[in-house]
Simulated scan of single mutants.
Amino acid sequence: MRELQRKGWISDQHGAWTMMALPPLLGWALSLTFVWMVVLMLVAWAMAFQMFSAVCLWVKTPTKRRGRIVPAILTYSVLAAIPGITLLAMRPQLLWWAIVFAPLASSALFLVWKGRERSLGARAASILAGGIMGPVAFALATADGSPAAVTPHAWAACTVFTLHYVGTVPLVRSMIRGRKDPRWAMGATLFHACCTLGVTAAWWFGALSIWPALVWVCLTARAWVMPTLSRTRKRPLSPRLIGFTEIAWSALLFVVLLIP
């Protein structure tokens, strides 16, 4: 596995796998329809994600060792292009999404090139780019794939889910690299509190059910409790425990966002 990661065939960011897969699956689930073109989009997106990960690895790898990553980049580029071009030929309206997606992906790649891969900006740009695939999947499943086809409920649900992943960046940082700095926990808690107000407003105006708002209250509480526990214990919370906990929260939020 490590050899495959060094050569760019597998992403070394384990948490990125759920961030890649769940947003488009949420958008598709919200549509309540089965369209085979969404399957084609999921294949193209998975291959594009792998290609992007390989390109990021190539950018931050010393020049002498970059050659071993090129086969992965070329392979994933072809595997993404075949379903991607086919899909665009049938649904050219999908190109409208590039107006938002391209700047986000480019910003993330630029920050990786500048050696700031772990910065909040790079992480947030990557997560937001992936989050766009939720509305894309919904629009493709229900209409022609254009942004205008996304309903207010789908926009709200996909946005809430994406913000959850954005919030995991400072939260995980507060328990690992920034464990001794309480400002990370304060920032993560403040971010979650603001998002909770936004989700509550979405429920108040009828865009979401009450359940996502209740889950976000719990997410805000865990944003303070878990870093505090990790900071005050003799042994901090393990990365494995943190990772599985975040997967559980993501799964719970995914489910409640499907409640009408």
Rank of each mutant, 00 (worst) to 15 (best):
G206N: 10
V255N: 12
F244Q: 13
P212C: 10
S250A: 13
G206R: 03
W216E: 05
F254P: 14
S230F: 09
P236T: 03
V255I: 15
W249P: 02
S209F: 06
W204C: 01
V217K: 13
A213Q: 04
T228M: 15
L219I: 05
S238L: 09
P236F: 00
S209C: 12
V225K: 06
V217T: 04
M226Y: 12
W211N: 15
L229P: 01
L241M: 08
G243Y: 08
A221E: 03
R231Y: 00
W216D: 03
L252H: 09
P239L: 06
G206Y: 00
S250H: 09
R233A: 11
V256I: 10
S209P: 05
A223M: 02
L219S: 08
V256H: 03
P236V: 03
A207P: 07
L214K: 12
P236M: 06
R240S: 10
P236Y: 01
K234F: 11
I242N: 09
A248V: 15
I242Q: 06
T232F: 01
R222K: 12
L219A: 04
L229V: 14
P236H: 01
S250G: 12
P227R: 03
W211E: 14
P239D: 05
S238A: 04
V215I: 14
L253T: 12
W211V: 01
F205E: 01
G206I: 02
V225E: 01
R240C: 05
L229H: 07
A221P: 05
P227W: 01
L253A: 00
C218P: 03
R235T: 13
A251E: 15
S230K: 11
K234C: 04
A248C: 12
R240M: 05
S238C: 11
G243A: 02
L241D: 02
F205D: 09
S209H: 15
W216Y: 11
T232M: 14
I210Q: 13
E246N: 02
C218Y: 13
R233P: 02
A251V: 14
P227S: 03
L214H: 07
F254G: 11
